[in-house]
Structure formats: structure tokens, C-alpha cells
Nucleic acid binder design. Structure first.
Lengths: 233, 233
DNA sequence: GCAAATTAATGATTTATTCAAG
DNA sequence: CTTGAATAAATCATTAATTTGC
């Protein structure tokens, strides 16, 4: 099924003289550019590369049941995260504490802790904050229309102390957590690092975030892994 | 909602008396909870945890020239990715080939290849596709208003053949790259994996994407690393 | 000619919207 | 209906072009 033109592809790929050739939609065989005389030209088949999304289903509302048997039962656990009460509680706690968009280290630590209560991944924490923030906001907006009274539950004693590895308190002064809710935009630079595996790379592959050269020590190594499941369901 | 009763819910947290204390917005120093007598209790200070964003400068429009001499030449690479011509060329090529949102493997491979031409990370590839797609779209929309003629530059010979390790052609048939541009929404599940470090975890921490258990072999291990630079500049 | 100021491009984040699972 | 997951849109922020004054 895979068209796989894969010949040497994984070979040193270009390193010198790229000479790529990508089959475009209407590719004409006329191009004299194809001087791929180099042996090490890794070929990177577009057939499999582009559109990994096998599903041609255009979200057609027609109920053509594509659910072939091969697809069901892909994973036992269930497809999406189902948070436990403890997990939710902790997350809400953090949210009420003012956390809006945790950074990598934070997500790492939160995930680590919540993992004690059930299976969880970093993306779940990430998404939870995003969703919760958005939905709280729209709920609040909706409420602001109909009624405008006590917006705050009287449970004022949510003074909780989370402890974890407080490694990362990088000299940040005391940020008063004031504008926790309503600041419309808060620029926050996130840095990703993409660590390629040993695709016979020897350098240039492993790059750390180039912004943080402070005391960013070991603990912060969090890795998010977008994987694209393909036949999602 | 919620209402948190956090007291207990924090119990059991971390198997050994977590004792969290999350300084809420207006935390009173009265909390006697700070019984962090445990040495190994990883304390997770909210001060540093929440709002790591030290920068108080609210984007003051006043033209105080921030460009202190220290800014230039801070790091040779520069803070943001500055793509080379080759990199751009390859990316555009892929885009014209129909690639919209590469998945993890694809990003990994692309990054690996583009890395040959200059420093690059996975997030750059990811963002590039997002931005390029969005901007092409809006450009096209804008053009559709004023004029509707030759939308295609006559450079028809963009027949490029990229080769790479086409490992992941999971049974995808031949997708004709047709609906490359206009499909309004295409659900695409991405899976992240969050790999926590050894924060005295023994299990449950390392989770692979639970969707793909097919022939997902070694190469696919791509790791994005959001790091949050903190002092951005 | 060159450096500061302004503008245009575009990289990087956040928010809004939408889809789908339970 | 609730909410996790994903994408698209909006927006911020930084770098390169470009212009302008000397």
C-alpha cells in the first residue's frame, strides 16, 4: 500500500547539494533539475509524507460507516484522558491559585504529580488549562449579562500549599498574582526543543532552548510529543 | 462548581503528605500549613510556579530604546529562527506539495533535514506551516476580492522529489493531493507525550502516544520542548 | 555612504472555535 | 450536555528591508 519510493532516503540526505524533487500536484517530467547524481540523496517520498491523514473523509455528514474492524480497539485505555477527582481538584486548585498557562517545567511537575492518581500526559494538563480558562471566561461573560452579583464563592480559604521541587525559582521577584484573570493578553514566550533521534546525525540535532541560559538546570526536561495518530477513529 | 474543599483532596497527594500550599491571590501569611518538615518534600513554590513571567514591562509604547548594546550579539543565533534560503525553499516546496500540518514524524524528519542548512528546531517547522497556511489563506482571500486571474506563477517546474525515511506510510492509500487548500476543517488528532524525568517516578511517567501502536518504530521519537525562557531578553 | 527611524514580513503565542468522546 | 482534543484566527514581538536625514 505505501507507495514507498523510499530507496535511500534516510541516507545522509543532502548534506551537500540537496537536489530535491517533490512531486507536485501536476508534476511535469520535464525538469532537467533532477541532477540527483549524488548517491546520498535521501528520498523522501511525498506520497507517504504528505497527507498522512489517510482519511479522505471530508467530514462528510453522510453516514458512511468507515469504522472497519481494524480500527476499533486500537488502544484499550480509551482514547481520551479521563481525569480523576483528585486530578481535577488539583488542577482547579492551581487554576484558582492563578495559574493560567503553565510552562514546560510546570506542566512537567504537575503531570508528574497527577500521574500518581491516574494515567495522564502533559498534553492533558496543557489542554486542561486552555479549556478551563476559555470556558471559565465565557461562562463569566455569559453570567455578566444575566446577573452581576457575587461572582466569588465565599470559600475564601483556598490557601493551599503545593510543594514540589522548587528548583526553578529563578530570581523572579515577587510577582503579585493580581491580574490573574482578566489580562487579555499576556505575552509569554515558550520555547520548544526538538530533539531528533539518531538519524545519523552527529550534531545540530540536539538543540536546547537558546533563550534560557540562566540557571536552567536538569529538572526542566519535558518533552511533548505530537504524534498524529493517523486513523484516529 | 468546584468548590474545592481542597483540604483533603490534597491528602494522599504524593503518597507522602504533600502539603500543598498554594498562595492564592491574596494569600494571608497566616497559614500554619507550612509544616514542610519533610526534607524530601519537593516544594513547589507558587511564587515561582505561577507567573514565571517576570517581565513587568507591559509593552510600554514609550520609545525607550531597549536596544542596549548588550542586545546585539547576545547569542550568535539570535532569539528567533531566521530561516535560510534553502530552508525556506524546502518548506515552500513541501507546502506546495500539499503538506499542511505535518505530524511528529514528519516534523522530525523535516527538521533533521533542514538542520543541515542551519539551526532549526521542531517548533520552527511546526510554526512555519501554521503561519504559512494561514497567511496564504488570507492572502488568497484578499485577492479573491480584488482580482481573480492567474493565481499561479508560471514556474510550473517545481517538481521536486524529497526523500526521507518514509517509514510511516501506514496503509495510507494514494491520497490524491487534491483538496489541499480549501478544506475548512480537518480534524487531526495530535498526540503529545510528556516524558517526565526521574522525579522519583517509577512508572506512569513515560507514556507514549497511546494511539499509535502500529509499526511505530524507533525513528519516530520526536520531542518538543516548551521551555519558557523567562527573561526573554 | 551609513546609521537611526519607519515600515513590512514573519516567527511565536494566545484565544476563539469546532469536533468528537463519554 | 459536558469536556477533552485539535485547529484556525488573532495578535504580539522581533527581525529584515526600506526610507530618510545627515
Amino acid at each position: 500500500m505505501g507507495s514507498m519510493k523510499v530507496h535511500q532516503l534516510a541516507r545522509g540526505f543532502w548534506e551537500h547539494e540537496p537536489s530535491l524533487s517533490l512531486g507536485c500536484k501536476r508534476l511535469r517530467p520535464l525538469a532537467p533539475k533532477l541532477a540527483t547524481t549524488h548517491d546520498t540523496v535521501t528520498s523522501f517520498d511525498l506520497k507517504s509524507f504528505i497527507r498522512p491523514e489517510s482519511g479522505p473523509r471530508k467530514l462528510g455528514s453522510s453516514d458512511d460507516h468507515k469504522r472497519n474492524s481494524s480500527q476499533v480497539e486500537t488502544h484499550p485505555g480509551g482514547t481520551r484522558w479521563n481525569p480523576t477527582q483528585e486530578q481535577i481538584g488539583i488542577l482547579e486548585m492551581l487554576y484558582r491559585g492563578g495559574m493560567r498557562t503553565p510552562n514546560a517545567q510546570q506542566i512537567e511537575q504537575i503531570t508528574a504529580q497527577l500521574g500518581k492518581y491516574g494515567k495522564i500526559e502533559g498534553k492533558n494538563v496543557f489542554y486542561w488549562f486552555q479549556n478551563h480558562k476559555a470556558r471559565e471566561r465565557q461562562k463569566q461573560k455569559r453570567n455578566s449579562l444575566g446577573l452581576s452579583h457575587s461572582p466569588r464563592t465565599p470559600t475564601a480559604n483556598n490557601i493551599i500549599t503545593i510543594s514540589l521541587d522548587s528548583r526553578g525559582n529563578q530570581g523572579v521577584g515577587e510577582r503579585s498574582l493580581d491580574h490573574g484573570e482578566d489580562s487579555p493578553y499576556k505575552r509569554k514566550c515558550r520555547s520548544w526543543t526538538f530533539e531528533c533521534f539518531d538519524q545519523e546525525e552527529e550534531e545540530e540535532s540536539m538543540r536546547w532552548c537558546n533563550n534560557n541560559n540562566k540557571d536552567q538546570e536538569g529538572d526542566g526536561t519535558l518533552e511533548l510529543f505530537p504524534l498524529h495518530p493517523e486513523g484516529r477513529r
